[in-house]
Design a protein around this nucleic acid. Structure first.
Lengths: 209, 209
DNA sequence: AAAATTCTGTTGCAATTGCAACAAAAAAAT
DNA sequence: ATTTTTTTGTTGCAATTGCAACAGAATTTT
């Protein structure tokens, strides 16, 4: 999807090192963190898939972010609350590294090589996250359902370097991700098909333009 | 608004150092960068205010991001294009530092103190940016104009620690920032007033709840 | 100081979107 | 293998939102 930052090695190193790291295994459909406790917490997803979710007062679910291997998340990235309850939920069995931002600035006594590369690697993870969020803002600021779909498909097209690709969501989740009504989205997908702009087979989409 | 990262000192240092830094002054309403050239470019706003803008094919303007002193932006944060033309425009006279991501990873020969703190400070700037973008996503995923306004006002309330605050936008720009139609937004503001939820005097809003 | 431009406030109407509801299909759990 | 739950697909109707258009206020430029 994005550039490969070669951070896998880094996240492997994290575990057995001088930094205070907690490792936890979370089962599918369980909550990883609810963004209330754990001030300045940083999490790295070592294995699995997870979503950052919000439910509003009307029961609308929104997928604020999606996380896969090596993605970074946690309370530290949400210091400002606008009366929302957020939580990260495991979509598959997950393995997560927990530590705090405060810890990373404390130099370890041994001046180890690990600490040398820590900031550098975190910088890459942060950069990756910013890019992902920028894409998200671009999608969300599109004014119509059609434009959101087209933009998202355009992204998947670029990402897969193919006119055909698989949506990495159920259609229910895709609507929650684009922050639109599912039935209205289905209606729009139908229009796109009828106008011959796309074809569709399950979660596989082919762009006809 | 956010935590103070004490990065001002850092951005001052940047200019007279081993890193290849370009400094430019850009006049109000001129384009700072158009996100096409300048691969891996990073910009830091040393002085002034700027917006990242997109116009869609229907002429709708969207303010994707707003930048003030010490904010970081540039092409590097947008590696994936989804057929949008983006550009950053100076809202006031600006002073900008330009460098590239590639340069920062090159250790300088003198092993200077500056390079020691470079990654650390960039990490803070990146973190700050992620927080800002997360807030943005929270706003944009709200389903109705009313909810967007309420959320944004709630943020300003928290930020100013007061029920009264000044919107840092014209109403035209606020609509472009929330990605909604201006007239529909004005209508909603009127409703909020009529229901006694807010009062309004120019760009000053007071929450009545 | 006058002219030009941008911003605010408003409204009727049209288009889009959301809501509710349901049946069939598919997937997951027992 | 059967039951339960979730997802998909669909549609009429209502509510919201966007569009167009304009006048007056405010701001900026000349």
């Amino acid at each position: 999807m994005y550039d490969d930052f070669n951070v896998s090695e880094f996240t492997q190193q994290l575990q057995n090192n001088c930094l205070k790291i907690q490792v936890k295994k979370i089962k599918k459909n369980e909550i990883i963190t609810n963004y209330i406790n754990d001030k300045n917490q940083i999490c790295i997803l070592k294995k699995g898939i997870a979503d950052l979710i919000r439910y509003d007062k009307n029961g609308n679910k929104t997928i604020l972010e999606t996380f896969k291997q090596n993605d970074i998340f946690g309370e530290i990235f949400f210091p400002i609350r606008i009366n929302n309850e957020l939580f990260t939920i495991a979509k598959e069995n997950c393995e997560i590294l927990y530590f705090t931002y405060d810890d990373i600035s404390v130099k370890c006594t041994q001046n180890c090589k690990f600490h040398e590369s820590l900031n550098n690697n975190l910088l890459k993870l942060f950069l990756y996250k910013i890019r992902k969020q920028n894409l998200r803002v671009e999608l969300l600021t599109k004014r119509t359902i059609r434009e959101k779909l087209e933009s998202y498909f355009s992204f998947l097209e670029t990402n897969n370097a193919k006119k055909s690709f698989t949506i990495p969501f159920s259609y229910t989740d895709l609507a929650d991700y684009l922050s639109i009504d599912r039935s209205a989205m289905m209606r729009e997908l139908k229009s796109l098909q009828q106008e011959g702009l796309i074809s569709r087979d399950g979660n596989n989409i082919t762009l006809k333009y």
